[in-house]
Design a protein around this nucleic acid. Structure first.
Length: 523
RNA sequence: GCUCCUGUGGUGUAGUCCGGCUAAGCAUACUGCCCUCUCAAGGCAGUGAUCUCGGGUUCAAAUCCCGACGGGAGCACCA
């Protein structure tokens, strides 16, 4: 090694061009352009310690709301890794707070995951394992690693702040046992909790004797009033992940400080420890995900429901015309990272456009219509292709001399101008004031006139187009976040299936929401 | 305030663990050309980053060390 130092310093003393010249003379192959890498499907980085066939991942949503893009990220990361290693996937409804869970959310989450196309090997609820939690609760108390605390909330948080031990932590085993049993019948909500014996002096505030169990008297959507002592999140995930055989657990990074606790609980119980990894949260700019901000908007009627196309809920994205494949590609393109991101919606749209382009029927649509009367049209109908390159059939459109164009297009026109009406023929304008008139001059496609879309006036179909815009600018709700415009399209629109994606030629992609409504997806 | 995480072009990332092959790859956005009866998709090309800043180590740093600054999170009997 040391022997090469003089050589290195000698070479370093050359100038860049000297080196370059010498290489060109003696080793030209070094300068040959590198061959381009073949474009490959993007995927997540490999997992440390993952053995093919042995990986088990889990997605643990709390059924306390409608699933959104953030859930999609977690679910897709879990799925990708499981697939990458030919492993198993668990869906676990994390329902240990009966005050928050509702039956409809269990269902909504399943619907969302189905839409994303994720299938699980095991579907369960954390609340299925209540007896197990009690068993482990008893065990951790017996081991001296937990105690029952009956202090007031304020006191507990004060002690945490001041790093002082709670007097309850001094109670002996019998006392703890006695109180533990009392939690099941006597203590009211708020009167007693089980606390992990952590370290009140820890720099990590999570470790300052956190809650393991508390009394909640609310009715649970699945279990009714059968239980009143509920495990906390920290206790439940640790135990569930361990007994479910999870090898790699992923959660978003706001949980990062809880890792120490997660492992400590499992250590105290001498249970197997999964590998915990975290990723950054995913949110879109100006598209909040939190119930705290969305709920008021819905209550005030500013947004009709959680499936509104302005929202990043899975239902909202679906109605807007975003495909699950696009969501998946997009999320994977974001990578597995802990750095904070406000992802641009652009990127999602781009993935979507490419997916949707190949099978979106091309249709003519005009807005702010202006009438054009065309003299001497040779035919009473034309056939238009449903797609420029893919074989998606043709549609027949009946025409007479009365047509509609978009005024955006017509306002630039002057008498004498020539235009091409796509699929119909070339027109020379004779009048362009409040009403347009023109003459058919042939059907030569080799012309370079402006090519415009049109609809026949007599049987055009009026629809409403919803154009979702950014919902929030900073903290401010955007009153104009949903633009509604009346537009006119071909009658063929009525024959398309609800939910199908359409490309309005020279305008952009829309999803058919109903017989008289479309939602703008993207350009 | 304390603690933890994070910081690469307009944007999202790769590379950072194991310093040289990279004055930095990909995607997106933008621009131009080609293709095309669309302002789509596809093809090609281009603009754009001395890798937050300042020190240090080294022959050599986006990559290692120290410090500063910016952003985020936690400090719940919510998950």
């Amino acid at each position: 090694m040391e022997a090469c130092v003089p050589i290195v310093s000698e070479i370093n003393s050359y100038s860049t061009s000297e080196i370059k010249n010498q290489i060109e003379e003696e080793f030209p192959e070094i300068l040959a352009p590198k061959e381009k890498l073949v474009k490959q499907e993007q995927s997540l980085p490999p997992l440390e310690g993952a053995e093919p066939g042995k990986v088990i991942t889990r997605f643990p949503p709390e059924p306390n709301g409608y699933p959104h893009i953030g859930h999609a990220k977690a679910a897709i990361i879990n799925e990708e890794y499981s697939n990458m290693y030919d492993g198993k996937k668990i869906l676990r409804m994390d329902d240990t707070n009966p005050e928050n869970e509702r039956l409809e959310y269990y269902a909504a989450i399943k619907v969302g995951l189905e839409w994303l196309g994720i299938q699980y090997d095991i579907i369960k609820n954390t609340s299925d394992d209540m007896e197990l939690f009690y068993e482990k609760g008893q065990e951790i108390i017996n081991s001296g690693n937990a105690y029952i605390c009956t202090c007031k909330r304020d006191n507990i948080s004060k002690n945490r702040k001041e790093m002082k031990d709670c007097k309850c932590s001094l109670s002996d085993q019998d006392q703890n046992n006695d109180r533990w049993h009392k939690m099941f019948e006597k203590y009211k909500q708020g009167e007693a909790i089980v606390r992990f014996r952590g370290n009140m002096k820890s720099k990590n505030t999570v470790m300052r004797d956190p809650v393991l169990f508390r009394v909640i008297e609310a009715k649970h959507p699945l279990l009714g009033n059968r239980y009143r002592v509920w495990p906390s999140y920290d206790f439940a995930v640790a135990i569930e992940d361990s007994v479910d055989g999870v090898t790699h657990a992923f959660r978003s990074k706001e949980y990062e400080l809880r890792n120490e606790l997660y492992y400590s609980i499992l250590d105290a119980l001498k249970m197997r420890k999964p590998t915990m990894l975290e990723f950054s949260r995913l949110e879109f700019k100006g598209m909040p995900v939190s119930k705290r901000v969305l709920k008021p908007l819905i209550e005030e009627g500013k947004i009709p429901w959680y499936d509104d196309p302005r929202l990043p809920t899975l239902e909202g994205l679906r109605r807007r015309g975003i495909t699950p494949e696009a969501v998946r590609k997009f999320i994977i393109s974001l990578g597995f990272t802990k750095s904070d991101t406000l992802a641009p919606f652009d990127a999602l749209e781009s993935f979507n456009r490419k997916i949707v382009d190949g099978n979106s029927v091309r249709l003519f649509m005009v807005q702010n219509p202006q009438k054009l009367i065309v003299k001497n049209l040779p035919s009473s109908f034309v056939e238009l292709p449903n797609h420029p390159t893919n074989d998606m059939g043709k549609r027949k459109v009946d025409v007479d001399e009365n047509l509609l164009l978009s005024s955006d297009d017509t306002k630039k026109l002057n008498p004498g101008d020539k235009i091409r009406l796509m699929g119909l023929g070339n027109i020379t304008l004779t009048r362009t004031d409040h009403q347009l008139e023109g003459e058919f001059t042939g059907d030569d496609m080799g012309v370079d006139y402006p090519k415009l879309q049109w609809v026949p006036q007599k049987n055009c179909h009026q629809i409403k187009m919803l154009i979702p815009k950014q919902l929030f600018f900073d903290e401010e709700y955007n009153e104009g976040s949903l633009e509604e415009v009346d537009v006119y399209t071909e009658p063929y629109f009525l024959e398309l299936k609800e939910g199908s994606e359409i490309q309005f030629v020279r305008f952009g992609y829309c999803r058919k929401d109903s017989q008289n409504q479309v939602i703008f997806t993207h350009k």
